[in-house]
Amino acid sequence: MSTAHADDLHRSAATSRAPSEHADPPPAPSRRSRWVPRGSQLAAWAFLLPVVVYLGAFYAYPLYRNVDLSLRHYTVRSFVQGGAPFSGWDNFRQVIDNPTFSTALRNTMVFTLVSILFQYVLGLALAVFFHRGFRLAPTLRALFLIPWLLPLIVSASTWSWMFNSESGVVNYGLHLVGVGKVDWLTSPHWALTSVIIANIWIGIPFNLVILYSGLQNIPAELYEAASLDGATGWQQFRRITFPLLRPVSAITVLLGLIYTLKVFDLIWIMTRGGPGDSSTTLSTWSYRYGFGSLLPDFGPGAAVGNILILIALAFGLFYIRLQRSQPA
């Protein structure tokens, strides 16, 4: 099969989007010529109104508080009684000067990127696999969601049980194959790896479900045509599945990034960010300031939280750029 042919296949795949479209789809409309109904501004906002009201009612206030907390010098007293003095960037400066900052930032990046990479790749592989539609596939796919039914306190505790260095089943398994004891949760070298493994496990169902739905939107005729042309499974994946899944992949990865940046309870339950700061991420650090001791320190906690929001925002802007540069 020639490369030229594969490119044809790619092109036709990229232009056809829905099952309703059959032979000879028109070329993809450019952004300018998109279908836009007349008088649509008003109508568009009418469709958006409920969500806008909802966001305003429930998010504006907590967000405002988050910013306010990070710009004032709060003590428990002023938290309750009010009257915390404005302190400008002091909280941010304090946080950034703290030696924990660089560790937490690095851990956050490693935790997020490694988690996303594995969650996405494994999720996609599973989605493609389940998309083959064999006996029991729907049931098994549903079973993959069970981890999401469990309160995190339970699943995270189960992982720390399994990773326990003395009596955990993971070390027992390693012992059976002749590998020595690993201090998964209590060694500074392994703690981050352990929480990443648990987090990948938790994230797989999310990726699987969304990517699977995306796969279902790809018209089956494309694959039929491709296999008539003799395209192998891998070629079909590269030429049809992957490019057509791009918008769904992008949103999955973006949402995954956001949720992974936010993860704190899993890490908190498994290691408390320790030992030392070895598995401390920005979000566990922020929690530690606010709730980790008997004397809450909300200001720096909020500052760390806002830094995280900025990081997520950067990814968001990148996503929007990516979307704009994308054909059709």
């Binding site: 206030y61 907590p62 508080r65 988050n66 907390l69 990070s70 938290f79 309160p151 995190l152 306190i153 995270a156 505790s157 936010k262 704190f264 309870d265 908190w268 339950i269 408390r272 979000s283 566990t284 650090w285 922020s286 929690y287 606010g290 709730f291 809450p296 909300f298 906690g301 909020a302 760390v304 939280g305 995280l308």
Partner: peptide, 17 residues
């Protein structure tokens, strides 16, 4: 604390007002 962690869940900051 494990439990409380989830209870008080998610990080950062607090408060409403």
């Amino acid at each position: 604390s494990a439990v409380s962690a989830v209870v008080a869940c998610c990080a950062l900051v607090g408060a409403s007002a």
